[in-house]
């Protein structure tokens, strides 16, 4: 599997994603600077977390208009897997690769802590190593992760199995207390129709190493390795 991680001005989880990709796949990902447009042959593109362009306009809005994202959209159309984490998810929504938008957290505060996610389907290249319905622990760290879309879009996401993860309590129940940001229907991550594009606010790359507190996120990278190799 050949993966790439894109670095924008202000990306700050690019190294974290690269370290985990290399640890799991045994192969360092290509690090792509946002002005590069000549991409190698790729199976997976990771759009990492951070504060691209300071998020001074609307989160992800500036990065969505950079030349590299035009390339990413083209490659996504050709079936290359695209994985947006945190700010990467916000960017994918801004480019239109995923529906909806991420608003300011409901309590208006940045939040960094472990949350519990229910894996809604194991039928995807990202989640095949998880059991559907299982609960996994992954950290969030964002100020604007409050997922919003209109009711029709939400119904469609639900109806077509495009919700990848929901915030739940440790028992798997979708409660208000388990939702760290006020996201509609406790949505933490969504697929596109093909399920080859995933955007999620939580950071699976941050709990993929026993030393930093857990490995629940590692199965996502193992899923990708199995599916894309």
């Amino acid at each position: 599997m050949q993966a790439a991680v894109i670095t924008f001005p202000g990306s700050n989880c690019d190294r974290d994603a690269a370290v985990v990709l290399e640890a799991v796949t045994g192969r360092p990902p290509a690090m792509i600077w946002h002005r590069d447009t000549n991409l190698p042959k790729l199976d997976l593109i990771v759009v990492p977390g951070g504060f691209t362009y300071g998020d001074y306009l609307r989160v992800g809005a500036m990065a969505a208009h950079s030349p590299i994202m035009r390339e990413v959209v083209e490659l996504a159309k050709k079936g290359v897997a695209v994985f947006g984490i945190c700010n990467g998810f916000q960017i994918l929504c801004e480019t239109g690769l995923l529906p909806g938008t991420l608003m300011r957290n409901a309590d208006r505060n940045f939040v960094c802590r472990d949350v519990h996610l229910r894996v809604e389907t194991s039928d995807s290249i990202y989640t095949r190593k998880y059991n559907a319905g299982s609960v996994t622990r992954v950290p969030v760290a964002h100020g604007e992760g409050n997922y919003f879309a209109d009711q029709d879009t939400l119904d469609r996401l639900d109806g077509e199995g495009q919700v990848a993860f929901r915030y739940v309590d440790t028992y798997g129940a979708e409660t208000k207390a388990a939702n760290p940001n006020g996201s509609q229907r406790n949505i933490a991550g969504i697929f596109d129709k093909s399920r080859r594009i995933l955007g999620m606010m939580p950071h699976p790359e941050r709990l993929a190493d026993e030393k930093v507190g857990g490995t629940d996120g590692r199965a996502m990278f193992e899923s990708l390795l199995e599916a894309l190799s």
Partner: peptide, 9 residues
């Protein structure tokens, strides 16, 4: 919890 205390992994 207002601070990202995990970035850099």
């Amino acid at each position: 919890e207002r601070y990202d205390h995990m970035v850099m992994n």
